[in-house]
Nucleic acid binder design. Structure first.
Length: 160
DNA sequence: GCCAACGTTGGC
DNA sequence: GCCAACGTTGGC
């Protein structure tokens, strides 16, 4: 089971919005970057997903989700009415993919980007050194360190 | 709102 | 296939 990190702007779609979706989950659409898309295609049902809030007052990791549907072609790419319309995609060749995720946890104490950057052993995180990538893998070691800083277990439950 | 970083596009 | 122009991301 792999661990990933997905960015979202809370003004667009926040961890609270994901929580409201409950077990139905949410299609994580709108990824329009090849590197990010390729990571999406590697994701599998059951993989864990750290949810990161960007472009907000305190950017950081705010919660945990899980993948509930493997990557599939993004129908928005074919819809001229969609903000995610892609004129270069065609019905027999859609360039973009998405996955579905569902809410697991909202951390009572989020982990800020500032705190992540302050931890030397997290210096190789894609989040840190490839800062514009909206979908990125998290290594097992990185995940353990993050959980430790968040004071949670691997399933996001608070440790006291 | 500024702007640095960087991915994408398209002319040549 | 190079690279300048352009658009987007996202921290600050």
């Amino acid at each position: 089971m792999a661990v990933w990190l997905l960015k979202t702007e809370p003004g667009e779609f926040s961890i609270d919005d994901l929580a409201e979706r409950g077990s139905d989950g949410e299609p994580w659409n709108g990824i329009r970057n090849y590197q990010a898309r390729n990571f999406l295609r590697e994701m599998q049902v059951g993989d864990l997903v750290l949810i990161y809030h960007s472009a907000c007052a305190t950017p950081g990791i705010v919660g945990l989700a899980e993948v509930i549907r493997d990557a599939y072609p993004d129908p928005d790419a074919l819809n001229p009415e969609s903000r995610y319309f892609d004129p270069k995609s065609h019905a027999d060749n859609i360039r973009w993919s998405l996955i579905d995720v569902r809410f697991l946890q909202k951390y009572s104490a989020p982990l800020s980007l500032k705190a992540i950057k302050a931890e030397p052993s997290l210096g190789e995180m894609k989040l840190v050194n490839s800062s514009r990538l909206s979908v990125s893998p998290v290594t097992e070691a990185e995940y353990q360190t993050l959980c430790s800083l968040l004071h949670v277990d691997a399933m996001g439950n608070a440790l006291d």
